[in-house]
Design a protein around this nucleic acid. Structure first.
Lengths: 351, 351
DNA sequence: TTGAAAGCGATACCAG
DNA sequence: CTGGTATCGCTTTCAA
């Protein structure tokens, strides 16, 4: 580590380069920004001076001179799902702050699980009105193609929460959902004290995140906890009403349910059912996302653990990542890694 | 939410204020920076213009004009403890990046658990050589007083990992260690399958973080898992050799140890002992901090869970917090909250 | 192809 | 007390 200690190690500026290379400021700028109209020999001279001086451009000054404005668009599903609401509220929290940092955020909502609506907005977005776009939506070929078209128009694209790995998106902001499912399974296996059946409540078959969680969960269950049997699945479509309506039949059919893995949204319906059902008192329940509802369920003991991803981190990361992509600058992978958070009743954040 | 959509909402600048208030740029600057020598009526005029236009100063431009340099000093214990090493490596990772952002980092090391050495450095630090200092050290009255003196000299102070709540430090960057201990106990109680004794390996009685974890752990054990008995404690002083030397006697004395809570550093010694001891195969082990060593132990099954705090987040947060304190600007509490991470073998970050 | 000079939004020195 | 003006580090016309 070379944590130098010089008190005034004056960093080289464009002026220094111009002087050393024996050219004008304008030429230095042309080379720096790869603008045309400079002879190769001149380019060489400038590059040499840059290397020699160890010059790194001051982004703040550059953005000031350039009057750079970042315009970022978020496209989220229009739903009252608490996790999505949390994402929205993080976006508006950043809105104010970023206004004073040359960054303007725009939020669009599309009907959930509706690929066409997403495609529509994506296709209507021009590079003039957005430097980057972050989307949270279904994984379909049409969406993938729209993403690729947006990229070709010069718009940076990030996928949020649920990835579109087949597309040319710049970055995925979210967790490894297979690992999240595996983590849920591991906790389930260790928390359940007797053998029995496990019930899974999934979301939609169009959502890659839901599918991946399910796959991870099943894999660990099969390999490691053979005394537990994944016996039933409800496709809840993130809808609390639907979930609470479907649950009674499942519990009637299977007598020995010892665990429930709620891998998507709509936890309200699950909680309502569990709290009205004395026989479900000892069932181990593991769900996703820390929200007001799930937090309460964890506190009262209805839920045993939560697998989560930090909505604030996701939004801040998406913003940083899109800015970097727009400027073709590298990111700090460590800072942008979204953790698979595990919450128990004792490590909940304050409030 | 008012996510406006104007394409060019030209933010007001100091020039606009000067024009509207009918004064010069210099006067606007005086008022903006609360400099003396301006009549009250003039101040009023300027303030009115500022409010009217909704002006917010562009920090980047201000820092450019001011040639603002942030000088931040980190003081860490000089130890080969992996967690501290991770903090150091995060500091040097930021060093390069920040060099191009008008920020210079300086790292000083002091002998561990040595209050006087810390006091010395703190007292020698002048406001000219540091805008802020982040310290990770023991909690003693002498350190507390030195922190207060540094604050009085105009240096921003943040405590890292282990707090000094009685001092006038600006901010604590780390986790709630009582809650961390409680979380460890909850996992312990749910993972252990039979009744028996629990062994605790602590660090130092001078370290507030270790004491707090211990208190949290004991509280939950007592209240919630009465079939488990915290029967023995080793004061490991973060020293692997010492820990592996002390363990055999404890295991000889107590036959039915079913769980070990390693609440401090020095995990290497614990792992060495456990892996050489066939009888310890089924002991549930919960330790702190994700490091290369603990990661491996979690992967092989020697450890069952890890309670951790993200070293990258801690360093980045300390930097943001100290900068804000130096500028007397507010922070984003949500972004600065360090999470109590729970790691199981399935949710380890890649690599 | 190249250079001179005028900003970007704010600060600070020097007069008056 | 107040104003004019150079400057920070970089970009961007406009001419040459």
């Amino acid at each position: 580590m070379k944590l130098s200690n010089d008190l005034s190690p004056t960093k080289p500026t464009v002026n220094d380069i111009a002087r050393v290379a024996g050219v004008s400021l304008a030429t230095v700028d042309r080379v720096l920004n790869a603008r045309p109209g400079v002879r190769d020999v001149t380019i060489e001279k400038v590059h040499k001076a840059i290397a020699e001086l160890g010059f790194v451009r001051d982004t703040a000054a550059a953005n000031l001179a350039r009057r750079r404005q970042y315009r970022l668009t978020f496209i989220l599903p229009e739903t009252d799902n608490e996790f999505v609401q949390a994402l929205e509220s993080e976006i508006s929290a950043q809105f104010e702050r970023l206004l004073h940092q040359r960054t303007r955020l725009d939020l669009r909502r599309v009907p959930p699980f509706d690929p066409q609506a997403m495609v529509q907005i994506l296709d209507d977005l021009t590079a003039r009105e957005a430097d980057g776009v972050a989307i949270f939506g279904p994984e379909t070929p049409s969406v993938r193609d729209a993403v690729n078209r947006a990229k070709e128009r010069g718009i940076a694209v990030a996928t949020l929460v649920s990835d579109l790995p087949s597309s040319s998106r710049d970055h995925f902001v979210g967790i490894d959902n297979v690992a999240a499912g595996r983590t849920a399974a591991l906790l389930m296996g260790r928390f359940v004290s007797s053998s029995g059946r496990i019930l899974i409540v999934t979301g939609s078959r169009l959502a890659r995140d839901h599918l991946e969680r399910r796959a991870g969960f099943d894999a660990v269950m099969d390999n490691r906890f053979s005394d537990l049997d994944v016996a039933a699945t409800i496709e809840g479509r993130d809808d609390p009403e639907r979930i609470s309506a479907l649950l009674p039949a499942v519990f009637e059919k299977h007598s020995n349910i010892v665990g429930i893995y709620s891998s998507a949204a709509g936890n309200g319906g699950l909680i309502e059912f569990l709290e009205s059902q004395a026989s479900a008192r000892d069932v181990v329940v593991i769900a996703h996302e820390l929200t007001a509802t799930s937090r309460k369920a964890l506190t009262t003991g209805t839920f045993d653990a939560l697998i989560s991803q930090d909505s604030g981190h996701i939004i801040r990361s998406a913003i940083r990542v899109l800015k970097s992509a727009a400027d073709k600058l590298p990111i700090d992978p460590k800072q942008e890694r979204i953790r698979i958070d595990v919450y128990l009743s004792e490590n909940l954040p304050p409030q």
